[in-house]
Simulated scan of single mutants.
Amino acid sequence: MPDPNNPGQFGNREDTVEQARKGGLASHGHATTELASIGDAVGLLAEQHQQIRTLFAETLEAADTGEREAKFYTLRRLLAVHETAEEEIIHPRARRELDNGAAVIDARLHEENEAKTALAELESLDVDSAEFEKKLTQLRDDVLDHAEHEENDEFSRLRTELAPSQLHAMRRAVEIAEALAPTRPHAGVESVGANLIAGPFAAMLDRARDAITKPHGA
């Protein structure tokens, strides 16, 4: 947690998220390791993929309406934080650093926008309906397939291109977004990007993006 008595600490300065997004200037090659075994941005996002997998299972297996609604909300919140952190911090760096990075990231963004549309449709359904369960199962399969593409085509390659200090700095920006993301949906938040969808999930996306780009709520 940031220490309010230490203005120089990461998280207490307005420029720290921008520094983390840039992740330093130089690139250095490093051997790829197990993605979730190192406490950097890649490791954190790989760990979140596992959390997302678990939340999909818990939502589908919920015993009653209240539990399913709560699990579905938690799932959407994590997806909002995770995808926004990738779009604002990880994908731009991968686009610049990786060979054929533009094609790789454009494919990932297409998958992410399809997931956003699917979530908007799910939010309009009764969580106890057969249609909700069918669409959520399909979304789970699509999201986990997307996560596998990210880990193989993007994350592991970033590990070989960036210095550990750069990846650790990027992790701090992701952690700020997660800490400041909303704990409940709040309607009426306008989209800050043309590709965002209407509804509670869109509000979560907006709030997560604000946490990254304006960590002090400015």
Rank of each mutant, 00 (worst) to 15 (best):
R184A: 15
I90A: 00
F155D: 02
S156A: 09
R209T: 00
G217K: 02
K214T: 05
A177H: 01
I105P: 00
H216G: 08
N6H: 12
L35A: 04
S27T: 11
D99Q: 12
A218G: 13
L196H: 02
L180P: 06
M170C: 12
A181F: 07
E161R: 10
H49S: 00
A173T: 06
G8D: 09
G11D: 03
R13T: 07
D142P: 04
T84V: 12
Q19M: 09
A211S: 02
T84Y: 06
E133N: 04
P200H: 01
R53H: 01
G199T: 08
T33E: 09
N5V: 08
K135C: 05
E34S: 07
L45N: 03
N113D: 13
L75S: 07
A41D: 03
T213E: 06
T117Y: 05
N6E: 11
K214S: 08
L44A: 00
A85M: 10
S165Q: 14
D64M: 10
I176S: 01
L35M: 04
S129I: 08
G199D: 03
D145T: 13
L122K: 00
P2Q: 10
H49L: 01
A120K: 06
L78H: 10
T16C: 15
R76K: 15
H30Q: 09
L125G: 00
